[in-house]
Each structure stands twice: as structure tokens, then as C-alpha cells.
């Protein structure tokens, strides 16, 4: 545990400064682009009217959500693909942690927390740079608790997606390359879920996709809570939808992960 905290410290000391530069330049390009088209689009009035604040929050929350599915996928993947090899002997990470009597569940959760913590720090950088460098303003009556609830439910749904993806990797027995379920959801969500622009402006066929993604509800609810100051009663419908997404995706993910790990153990390897 202490060693892992040192790894976190190394992340803060070495990786974070460069990540901050990345975030800064990422926001800056949008900032200047949006400055070129000054004015408040009608579609953004409901979100407080500031397009820069809308985009910055969108970038932060989107990373917050997609990294949840990505990190859980990579944690499970590292469990089955990771290999300790020395001399003529080889141990898979799965065999290795079992020798140490660490459960696969504990390994995946610990790996998830450690890596996701780093993503949370980077997401916070978006918000801090937005507030203190690019001068965005949150609504004076911002509902932070509502935003946190929306994001937590969104994260739970995304963890479910990550677990489903990892199970597909194990069941289909293709571990290398990019897994298509997470890949397509992450790709679509960046366009249709309201990262840079509200889904209302999308053509109807894309809007249909948007409303089948938990990212859309999580981001829009959090933005409404922070930028428009919606209270929890106004956000109730979104909370219910997000809860259904979280329940369905997470339970499906857990069941599939359980089945796929059983299959993996029975096979004695990925193939």
C-alpha cells in the first residue's frame, strides 16, 4: 500500500505537470475557437449560456466517465494477460496473485482505484484551469451534490460497460488490440453525449444514439446542476434514468465478469 502511494507520488511529481500542459493546451484551442464566434447560442441558454464553461465541463466529465470503463477494462486485462517470466518459468498475473492469496476481485479493485485516482486528479485540473485561467463561472446556486450524484451513477454505468468489454475479451479469446465495445461507445459518446455541444442540435438519428448512452444523461445532469443551478427535484427524472442505466449495466457487467473468469480459470489460460 505504501509502495503504491509512492507510485502516486511519482505520478504527481512527474506525470501531472505534463498532463496539466496537455489539458491547458486542449482547453486553449477550444477557448480561442469559441472566442472567434462570440455570443451565446440559444441552445446553451439552459446551461447558463457560457459556451467555454460548457466545453470545459464537458471535457472534464467525459474523461471522468470514459476512463472509468477504460481503467476497469485494463485492470481485468492486466490480470489475464500480465505475465511474470523468469528463467524457464512463467506465471500469469492471475496465478501470481493467487499464490499470494490475493483474490482477483481485490486485485482488480485496487488496480482500478490506483489508476482511476490519477484520472480524477487530471479531471480536477480541467475544472481548476477553467476557473482560474480561463475565467469560467459556475452558477451562484450551483447544485454540486446533484452533479456528484449524476457523475457517480454515470461512473457506475461506465464501470459496467468496462466489465462487459473485459468479459467479451475473455469469452471471445482476443486480448490484443482495442476492444470494440468500449471503443465504439467512447467514440460515439464524444460526439453525441454533449461534450462540446448539446445533443439537441444533433440530427434525429444521432439523437437516438445519444439517449441510449449513460454518458449523455450523466454529463447533461451534472452541467445543469453546476451551470444552471438545477435542484435535485428538477433533476429527478435524469437521476432515475441514470440509476436504471447503472443498475442494468453494472449487474450485467458483474454477472458476465463472473462467468468469464470461471471460463478463464477452467481453460487455464486465455485460449
Amino acid at each position: 500500500m505504501k509502495r503504491n502511494l509512492w507510485i502516486q507520488y511519482a505520478f504527481i511529481e512527474w506525470t501531472l505537470p505534463f498532463e496539466v500542459i496537455n489539458v491547458l493546451f486542449g482547453i486553449a484551442s477550444w477557448y480561442f475557437l469559441l472566442k472567434m464566434y462570440r455570443g451565446t447560442p440559444a441552445v446553451l441558454k439552459v446551461y447558463g449560456g457560457d459556451p467555454i464553461a460548457y466545453v470545459i465541463l464537458g471535457m472534464a466529465f467525459h474523461r471522468f466517465l470514459v476512463s472509468a470503463s477504460g481503467v476497469i477494462l485494463s485492470s481485468i486485462r492486466s490480470l489475464i494477460v500480465g505475465m511474470y517470466s523468469s528463467g524457464g518459468s512463467r506465471f500469469s498475473m492471475f496465478e501470481y496473485i493467487r499464490l499470494a492469496r490475493i483474490s482477483a476481485r481485490a486485485y482488480v479493485i485496487a488496480n482500478f482505484i490506483q489508476t482511476y485516482l490519477q484520472h480524477i486528479i487530471i479531471c480536477t485540473c480541467y475544472l481548476l484551469l477553467g476557473l482560474f485561467v480561463f475565467g469560467i463561472k459556475f452558477n451562484p446556486s450551483a447544485n454540486y451534490i446533484g452533479a456528484v450524484i449524476a457523475l457517480m451513477l454515470g461512473i457506475m454505468a461506465c464501470i459496467g460497460i468496462g466489465m462487459i468489454s473485459a468479459s467479451i475479451v475473455i469469452l471471445v479469446r482476443i486480448v490484443y488490440g482495442v476492444e470494440p465495445i468500449s471503443w465504439s461507445i467512447n467514440l460515439l459518446s464524444s460526439i453525441v453525449s454533449g461534450v462540446y455541444f448539446p445533443p439537441e442540435i444533433l440530427p434525429s438519428w444521432l439523437k437516438v444514439i445519444a439517449y441510449y448512452l449513460p454518458h449523455t444523461y450523466a454529463m447533461n445532469t451534472a452541467k445543469l446542476a453546476i451551470l444552471a443551478g438545477y435542484d435535485n427535484s428538477q433533476l429527478l427524472n435524469n437521476f432515475i434514468t441514470l440509476s436504471i442505466f447503472a443498475l442494468l449495466l453494472l449487474s450485467t457487467g458483474i454477472v458476465l465478469a463472473y462467468i468469464s473468469m470461471k471460463v478463464y480459470i477452467k481453460r487455464g489460460g486465455l485460449l
Binding site: I174, G177, V178, E179, P180
Partner: peptide
């Protein structure tokens, strides 16, 4: 070889 940002290897193997 794996193009890292696309699921090409997945579909290629399938």
C-alpha cells in the same frame, strides 16, 4: 500489427 487506436486486430482475428 496492432494499430493501437482501432479494434482492427480484434476483427482480424475474429
Amino acid at each position: 500489427s496492432d494499430l493501437s487506436s482501432s479494434p482492427s486486430v480484434f476483427f482480424q482475428t475474429l
